[in-house]
Design a protein around this nucleic acid. Structure first.
Length: 282
DNA sequence: ATTTCACCCTGGTGGC
DNA sequence: TGCCACCAGGGTGAAA
């Protein structure tokens, strides 16, 4: 499940391997993987011949800035990996798996492959004349980046005070804060010592600060560990992340809490699984 | 305005 | 062994 840390690791890998390279062509194996433009051929024409000048991340979205052959802005290529998406930097001779959705070709028989078992992932080409926020629905309403100053204690506390839903549900709401998914919501709540079902408005300023700090700490720690590989996540070289080995509660239902040895509990919350330690979290 | 929920999809699992 | 119901998960858009 690629969340902010995994997407950030992929971004760094992409920047390392593709910055300054020209897209020589592309192939769309699953048309619905291309969210925009509607016709895959338009997508392919839009990016072919363009140079990738860099990769940016916003929440769980990736954006490659493009410069067209005459040096003018070529719009951008956007990618969302959703649950099982992967961007793999490969040699062209590597056999194409049945889960490959889009191929991007480069010189010297190099290739960037968008692979996605569950086919929820999407790619977009946004021309220089279009507005990213209009084309890539979801980007417009994204909340602050959790690692930025914008995600302040005052901001979080104000939003918490105005809501009665479970705090974990709020952390998963991309309009509140961008990039947190099921793994890091559980992990941050463990570090903050707060149970996932706690109503937002029961969390005061002191615990809001703890939660803000926990979100930052867990995301930073995971980026440093190369992300979490629970099942499908891989970096651009096909490597796994190591955060899964040290996760406090995520995916550890019934296993002993790493801090107090009480069994980690697994419950349903808003249609998602939630993991927590009943002793460490109140 | 805020919040909830069904839906999209595939591969793996567990029950019978 | 086969069949089927069920689950996981993020984002979207409709409904409450």
């Amino acid at each position: 499940l690629p969340e902010l840390p995994e997407v950030e690791i992929v971004r760094r890998g992409l920047e390392r391997v593709t910055q300054g390279l020209c897209v020589r062509g592309a192939e769309v194996l699953l048309p619905r993987a291309v969210a925009w433009p509607a016709a895959p051929v338009t997508f392919i024409k839009g990016i072919t011949g363009c140079m990738l000048t860099g990769w940016r991340r916003r929440g769980k979205y990736l954006f490659a800035d493009l410069t067209n052959p005459v040096g003018a802005p070529g719009g951008c290529l956007a990618v969302h990996l959703r649950m099982t998406g992967q961007l793999l930097w490969l040699r062209r001779e590597v056999p194409v798996s049945g889960h490959c959705r889009v191929r991007f070709f480069f010189d010297e028989d190099r290739e960037l492959r968008f692979t996605d078992q569950r086919t929820f992932g999407r790619v977009w080409w946004v021309s220089a004349l279009e507005d990213v926020a209009q084309v890539v629905s979801g980007v417009r309403d994204l909340g602050p980046e959790p690692l930025s100053d914008e995600f302040s204690v005052a901001y979080l506390h104000q939003r918490l005070a105005a809501s009665r839903r479970p705090v974990k549900t709020a952390l998963l709401d991309q309009r509140w804060v961008a990039g947190i998914g099921n793994i890091y919501a559980d992990e941050a709540l463990f570090l903050a010592g707060i149970r996932p079902e706690t109503p937002c408005d029961r969390i005061g300023r002191v615990r809001a600060r703890r939660l803000r700090d926990a979100v930052r700490a867990v995301l930073t720690a995971s980026i440093e560990a190369g992300g979490t590989t629970f099942s499908d996540y891989r970096d651009v070289y096909g490597g796994s992340g190591r955060y899964s080995e040290v996760a406090w509660v995520y995916g550890r239902g019934e296993a002993p809490c790493r801090r107090c040895r009480a069994p980690v509990r697994r419950i349903k919350l808003g249609g998602r699984s939630a993991h927590y330690c009943a002793r460490c979290q109140r």
